[in-house]
Amino acid sequence: MSFETTRVTARYRQNLRSNLGGRLIGAVLFLCAFVTVVTTVGIVVILFIEGLSFFAEVSPIEFFTGTKWTPLFTSKGFGVLPLISGTVLIGLGAACVALPLGTLTAIYLSEYATPRIRSVMKPLVEVLSGIPTVVYGYFALTFISPFIKEYLYPEAGPYMAISAIVVVGIMIVPIVASISDDALRAVPRELREAAYGVGASKLEVNTRVVFPAALSGVIASYILAISRAIGETMAVTVAAGARPNLTANPFEAVQTMTAYIVSVSLGDTPHGTIEFKTIFAVGLTLFFMTLVMNIISSRITKRFREVYD
């Protein structure tokens, strides 16, 4: 080491020791990131502890197989199946609306639309997911339900599952359209050219090559969209009604798991009672249903990315 270097080091020595401050900042930033982990742990712990204390009083067998959900009445029934059936009815119904529409939108956006049309249309479609769900509830209650009563099914009451199905379906179209569009656009151009090169028409290229190649991404979008539909709360609370109802008839009123949780919290059920604890049991069921679907969806998406990157 020369004299010159030694002197320079001495003059800036403070910098070499400033590592402590840097570490402190790193630790603070880590804590910020760790908040998300704490959130998840908090959710799981709360749902589990309160849920377990519910299951200490009500057997899980009754909960998961019973067909009568009347925890707030004097003759109590703790069978969650009517809520699950209501949730599944709306989730699957919304899927019937959103999957075809979303898929067609994605194919149109990625394969047919000019860049100009695309730049207008894609944000417009995405607006659908930015509208507050309570607004969809209003639309369902004041427009769709009366419309259906008037023209399709006069016997229906003011609340009906189908009305919620339509708005929840529309609400999740952007999820399907956006993620599927990404998946379709990620299909390499070479693959399209290969198909065109053997004389395939555009329809054949799209349906036999591009769509199958993007299938895993498309399916991931489907699962994510259905998971979102199942977790949707306000539109179903407003439009589908508040009657736990084990039915597959979309023109009847049903109650979903989310709508039930809201109805309890809007009421005056005191904390600590078995009635109040139902929301944790229902919440736990809901949490795991959506969690499993989200994990499957992100697994598929991840594998799909690995194929083309």
Binding site: L191, E193, A194, G197, V209, A213, V307
Partner: peptide, 12 residues
């Protein structure tokens, strides 16, 4: 027919 720069078999 056409053969491309990068081999591009379909994922089939």
């Amino acid at each position: 027919g056409m053969v491309f720069q990068k081999p591009n078999p379909f994922p089939k």
